[in-house]
């Protein structure tokens, strides 16, 4: 696999007040690849994800050292427009968080705040996004129904559709299936596989099988460090580090 590098971090350190949450992270994430981040709770994988679209800044006293490049642009550089960055680097959260609006208005939310008013274009974009998120057939007859009436799995796919409508380049997914049942999880996993043709995807998961099933590369985080970063297949069959082996075989974590 010789993909173009989409996201590159160099000597990345991140602090919450005095606590160092990320230690010297050097990762290169390829374009249109699925990269899984695994590791025990509190190891820094979600923190790393939130560094990539600067959502970590919302929690007050945080500090980032080192460089994070997306398309060769330092996203912590002085001229970076955070709002513009988050349009390019979208995020799906652990718990589905549809807004208390209709299904249509949820998907149209992003395009509308970015200034799209044309009803016909909105309609097309909503349909296209829902189709991409494999939700269209289930909701096409009730686009004006409240989004909170959907099942958990549908809500999460709606959140993905809402994100796709903004036409981002990178999708960050923070344990997107941890609150879902197995069938819904399967649908989201299939969705991730189909989306990687067009998007660079970084996904945090606690589910080792999930990482093995859907990702091209896997990074194993432990206590804020990346212990191992490799092709998923290699990682799960022949890990280089003893700690990786112990973790993926279930000896701790």
């Amino acid at each position: 696999m010789t993909q173009m590098a989409k996201i590159v971090t160099r000597n990345l350190n991140m602090y919450y007040s005095d606590f160092q949450a990320l230690k010297n992270i050097n990762l290169t994430i390829g374009e249109k690849e699925v990269t899984a981040l695994i590791g025990p709770s509190g190891c820094g994988k979600s923190t790393f994800l939130r560094v990539l679209n600067r959502m970590n800044e919302l929690i007050g006293d945080t500090r980032v050292e080192g460089k994070v490049y997306i398309d060769n642009q330092d996203i912590y550089g002085p001229k970076v427009d955070v709002v513009e960055l988050r349009k390019r680097v979208g995020m799906v959260f652990q718990k589905p968080n549809p807004f208390p609006k209709s299904i249509y208005d949820n998907v149209a939310y992003g395009p509308r705040i970015h200034g799209l008013k044309d009803k016909q274009k909105l309609d097309e974009l909503v349909e296209k996004s829902l189709k991409q998120a494999a939700l269209w057939d289930e909701v096409k007859d009730r686009l004006n129904a409240p989004a909170l009436g959907l099942s958990g799995g549908q809500q999460q796919r709606l959140c993905i559709a809402r994100l796709l409508a903004v036409e981002p380049e990178v999708l960050l997914m923070d344990e997107p299936t941890s609150a879902l049942d197995p069938i819904s999880t399967m649908k989201i996993e299939e969705l991730v596989k189909s989306l990687k043709e067009r998007y660079t995807i970084v996904i945090v998961t606690h589910n080792m099988q999930q990482a093995a099933r859907i990702s091209d590369k896997t990074a194993f985080f432990l206590n804020g460090e990346v212990v191992e970063f490799n092709e998923t297949e290699k990682m799960f069959t022949n890990p280089a580090d003893q700690r990786t082996e112990d973790y993926i075989t279930g000896r701790f974590g």
Partner: peptide
């Protein structure tokens, strides 16, 4: 108002005020 309404909007590239006006205030 759940924080996820704010974060959800911000993660779509909304400005802070857009998130408040369209998502937080109505709730």
């Amino acid at each position: 108002v759940p924080n996820s309404y704010r974060e959800g909007a911000l993660a779509l590239g909304a400005t802070k005020w857009q998130a408040i006006r369209t998502n937080v205030l109505p709730s």
